[in-house]
Amino acid sequence: MEALIAIILGTLTACGVYLILRARTFPVVLGLTFLSYAVNLFLLIMGRLTVGKPPIILEGITDYADPLPQALVLTAIVIGFAMTAFVIVLALKAYVRLGNDHVDGTHKL
């Protein structure tokens, strides 16, 4: 199972990095979203992999998944959404003002 997670995280990161190196704003936003998926998963697995033990206290059960990374990731997801929204609107504004959607606001020849 650990290997699968490593593959998932590696793929998400590689795709994210490739996309943020593109020259247009939209792929860069997609790349950032990929990277936030990877970062959120990475944070979560800092508590190691636990199957079927959600951190919801029940009588008689003492073994739970680590709740702390989960709490961190929960807010990170929401903030990540706010960031994505901010960046895409910034991209829109740049597109309107500059007439193109190049990340540097210029067409390079």
Binding site: E2, A6, I7, T11, C15, Y18, I45
Partner: peptide
């Protein structure tokens, strides 16, 4: 190449 290196690094770290 850079992307695959980065992804490989993260995968290794995760592992």
């Amino acid at each position: 190449v850079i992307a695959i290196a980065a992804g490989g690094g993260v995968a290794a770290l995760t592992w």
